[in-house]
Design a protein around this nucleic acid. Sequence first.
RNA 1: GCCCCGAUAGCUCAACGGAUAGAGCAGCGCUCUUCUAAGGCGUUGAUGUUGGUUCGAUUCCAGCUCGGGGCACCA
Length: 549
Amino acid sequence: MEERIRKAVGEALSAAGAAGTVFTVERPTEAAHGDYTTNAALVAAKTLGKKPHEVADELARSLVDSLGASVSHIAVAGPGFVNIMLAREAITFAVAEADAQGSEWGKGTLSSGQRVMVEYTDPNPFKEMHIGHLMSNTIGEALSRLIESEGATIIRSCYSGDIGPHVAKALWSLRKQGVTDPVSATELSAAYVAGNRAYEDSPEAKAEIDALNTEVYKGEDKALMELWQKGREIALEAFRGIFKTLGTHFDYYFFESETSEPGMRIVRDGVNKGVFEESDGAIIYRGEKKGLHTLVFITSRGTPTYEAKDIGLAFLKEERVQTDRSIIMTGTEQVGHFKIVLAALSEIAPLLAKKTSHVPHGLLRLTTGKMSSREGNVITALELIKEMIAKASEKNSDPLIREQVAIGAIKYMVLRQAPGSDIIFDPEKSLSLEGDSGPYLQYALVRAKSVLEKATHDAQERNSPNHPYLLERVILHFPEVAARAAHELAPNLLVNYLTELAGEWNSFYAAERIVGGDYEAHKLMLARAFVNTMTNGLTLLSIPTPEKM
RNA sequence: GCCCCGAUAGCUCAACGGAUAGAGCAGCGCUCUUCUAAGGCGUUGAUGUUGGUUCGAUUCCAGCUCGGGGCACCA
């Protein structure tokens, strides 16, 4: 419908001599202003040299003709908005579509045929997977699903730092304790914390750990590599368990241990081409030539930094799977890093750099103080999930539902805000089960499903009320919202919409008798349309959809 | 010091340059003999500061104040 209106407005403007005007067609903030509104007259008035109201009046007349029976009323309002009220039949038709299309309802074609790689979560073995990773995973999974729903094939990938100083610290500490068979991820991360403390407190330990780091890169010490392998596998197994709980399945796993070699090779190659240069024994990229700053790619000890590994990773991804577009999600603190890496990459492989983009997400910041995995005072992903399950248990005894509610509450909290902004996380208050929250959406859905279960007999009355319910007029916008959220990489747009939708359903539910009430068949269709919209919307966000609560 | 990001109600967040700046939490008052009260209805309360651009600015631009992040061998 939005497309139809956009087209009609565009044609009317062309006819009036204002082709190429950039205008919006959107849902008005106030339902009283109609189902769609356009600012086209306001914008075009200037180029046409007429008063906004004159242009608006002409546009309104033109739209009455071109939109015909879909529209019940078109009005000029305010400074010159043209407000469009849909006809009862058009609204009923949209709701019927929402009902009939089932899980297809809301899908679009914005990214049809594209192959898009999305890299997210990126936890590091030998460290804890903490709530920051939870945030990356939640946003990354939602974006993946949103783009997927617009017709793209998504290749989910996860990149882990299984080599480097943090690993050396953990291995050093394990060796000191004489551990040859680590058993748990917790044990590994404790070793990392201990190793890190020693690294900072003792110069001898620092020297040993640096040497150990180089040794792991060489990979010649058999016993050491065996310990590394074992630890790595335990950590990854733990990650896979959490991914499953969160509803993510990665198609590709990449590791720093495999990006180091190609990264170093490509960077060294780049020295000959004049992209990189040597300085104090290190190999660096002079970002100043592009308004950035200098960064070390290969250290003077001959080990690659994160930067060189990211260059290697870009090539490795390209080698393993063909894509049209490649998205890397990390925290905002890395925007500078990626600007430089992508600048360097554009000098080596312009096409690869062009299709790669860095999408930063905000950080989870605790109200209770700094969180640092070096200090070991992080809230781990598992702890948070467990805590939320405990909270959900006060209201429900079913273990499956408890987990669905807990995961829903966490994901909602992360997704409700603009993805680039930090979350001020108060463990006491942020994870609410009431008000604007994951469970609020889930609860509305569950109540609608429950109503439909009660409707066992065939409804007799087939009429629909002349005046459409607000709920119907919200439902019909779902495909537009999903498309916009995908296009803008902004899941929060969908979250806001679903929250409003749930509220509208709850009001409808409180005010109207559905089973056995007036217009029963129409209301039941509306309930099914709501269930489809909410189910599909929550699924796009990877928020679980419980059957009962 | 340089660069990037942010500042909206007591708190946590919305508002693609548009109409009376929306929610939730917290507070107050109602509401379960009625399809699930994790709900519904009502109510109090806000654009850091100084200018500029515009018919119109929370939104764009500049200065200031305050906060967060980054700035050569961590990731």
